[in-house]
Every structure is written in structure tokens, then in C-alpha cells.
Design a protein around this nucleic acid. Structure first.
Lengths: 158, 158
DNA sequence: CTGATATATTTTATACTTGAAACAAATTTG
DNA sequence: CAAATTTGTTTCAAGTATAAAATATATCAG
């Protein structure tokens, strides 16, 4: 056994990381569940639907299903269902890709664009309120640390 | 229009908060999806099951269903299903509460305790690895900021 | 004691989520 | 070009999640 000193230093750190993870999870769930309720009450909608519309709003020419699930980091089959419902509501459109009969390009309809704009404004205000306790000076640095967590995985898989 | 200066200061802040929220969400989902996969591959289990067992492990005398959903901040009906499966696997037990025929106290079985201990060790190591990019010096302060987000809501509803 | 109300939990309907399998269409390759 | 592989998407089975309704039991007010 090489060094006891290292062991006693190391252990509290992993406990700290565990606590950090639990607080990360709790903060996210708190905000998510509040957002979910507000989307439901104010717009009769859901967070996943909003996420899809939000992704599509950044790509006026639309995204293929696989691109959409790539952007949102959710499974392929998942997106199928959500898009199906958005199509049924007239907010989103599946447009065939010329020259590739497998694929379709998904994009917001006119109605989808204006509905998204409405919801995006509310969403931004809600976030502003729900993250209000974060010191403005900390906001950017905190986001930076969080991005390093997500990026670790991507780096690893390249 | 009272002050243009405030408006131009305020708007970037809400955008910063939005970006913070998006990175918070992404970090959480990255870690969650990695944990989900590892629980599945290494233990044939899931994160929600682990969460339930983790909560129960902190209460050797067990928790009522409503207490459990309170601790985990998930809906009542949700817990019913997860506990049903854990019971079927022999990891958890529903014990009648004497004097109240509505309630049951849920607790880990012997097998549940040792299975949880096994998984908890792995879980701590995984977290240690997945949050490895967070500077040790930042860990505690970051957790603090995150707790302030979750706590806002509780304060508000009291 | 009885009706009203509150509490503990399950059931139900609906939606989201995943991983894997199934399909279909495109592309590559021998 | 035909077979094999890859790509794009949907379908499927199982599990997770919510809100709301249903059920059963307990408690309380009169």
C-alpha cells in the first residue's frame, strides 16, 4: 500500500463530487418540473415538444429526423413520436427530400414559427426567474464548468 | 420609457441565464445517459431503481410510498410501478403499517441492501470519473449555487 | 355514530424515453 | 450489375413519468 495520505485526501473529493452530482440533478429536476407545469398550463404543451421546435427554429430549412435526434441527443424512435404529434397539431411539417426516398426534412410551419416565438419568450422569462438566485457574476463561469462535463464525453468518443 | 440603459444591461443577463440553463440541462443529460447505460450493462438495472434503493438505504425502517415519492420528488403513481418491480426482484419489501391498513412501509430486503451497496460503490466511482473535469476547488461552491436554484422553489411554496 | 373531509395508495390515460429489431432505400464493392 | 453494407426512419417492448380519477381507510365535526 503505497500512500495512506493520498487515500485520505482522495476520498472526500469523490464524496464532494457525489454531492455535486446530486445537487446538479436536483436543480435540473426542479427547473424542469416547473417548466413542464408552466408549458402544460399556459400552452397545453410539453418540454420535449418545445425542445424539438426550438431545434427546428434554428434551422429554417429543416432537419432530417436523424439530424434532429442528433442535435437533441435523444434516440431516433423518440423523435418520431414527438414529431408525429407536432405534425398532427399543424406546427411541423415533413417534407420529402428530393433524391432520397428514405429521408424527410422536418421544419416548422408558419403556425409553428409563431407558436414557438410565443413560447420562447415565455420560456426565457421563466428561466430568468427560476435561475434568478444565481449571482450574475457566476453565470458565465458556471456554464463553462458545466460544458466541461458534457464535453468530456464527446472528446472521449472521438 | 424610463431607462434604456437598464434594458441593454438586463437583456444579456437573461440570455446568459438561458445559456446557463441549457448547459445545466446538457451536463445532466450527458451524465444521466452515461449512468443509465452503465447500470444497464453492469447491473441490468436502471437509474430510477437505483434512486429508490438509495433513498430506502438512508431509512432502515423504511418509508411509506408517499414519503418515498416526497423524498424523490416524483409522482405517487410513478413510485408504485418502480417499487412493484423491485418487489418482484426481491430487492424491496412492502410491510404493512400496524394500525393503518391503507399504508405500507417500503424497505430494502437483505438482498436489496447488499445489491445496493455493490451498485453504490460503482456509482460513486462513475460519478468521480464523469465529473472529473470539475476543478476540485470549485466542487463545493458549485454545489452551493445549484442548491440555491432548488431551494428557491421550496421557499416560494412555504 | 354518521356524514364530511382528509390521507395513503393504486389505477388509468397519455406521453416520453430507450435500445433493439425491422424495413426500405441508397451506396459500395467485388 | 448483384450482393453486401450502410443509412434513414419507424416500429416495438419495456420502463419511466405525470396528472387525474378511483379506492380504501382514517379522522373529525356535530
Amino acid at each position: 500500500m503505497s500512500n495512506r495520505a493520498l487515500a485520505v485526501e482522495t476520498e472526500p473529493l469523490s464524496k464532494d463530487r457525489l454531492r455535486l452530482w446530486l445537487s446538479l440533478l436536483k436543480a435540473t429536476r426542479t427547473v424542469e418540473s416547473e417548466l413542464r407545469e408552466r408549458f402544460r398550463l399556459d400552452y397545453g404543451s410539453t418540454l420535449p415538444r418545445f425542445d424539438v421546435m426550438s431545434a427546428l427554429s434554428r434551422f429554417p430549412d429543416g432537419l432530417k429526423m436523424s439530424e434532429l435526434s442528433g442535435v437533441l441527443k435523444v434516440s431516433n424512435g423518440n423523435v418520431t413520436g414527438i414529431v408525429d404529434r407536432l405534425v398532427a397539431e399543424g406546427l411541423v411539417l415533413r417534407k420529402p427530400v428530393p433524391g432520397d426516398r428514405r429521408a424527410a426534412r422536418v421544419l416548422l410551419t408558419q403556425a409553428g414559427v409563431s407558436e414557438f416565438d410565443r413560447q420562447a419568450r415565455a420560456h426565457e422569462n421563466w428561466i430568468d426567474e427560476l435561475l434568478g438566485s444565481v449571482n450574475p457574476a457566476d453565470t458565465q463561469s458556471l456554464a463553462e464548468v458545466l460544458r466541461s462535463i458534457s464535453n468530456d464525453k464527446e472528446e472521449g468518443s472521438r
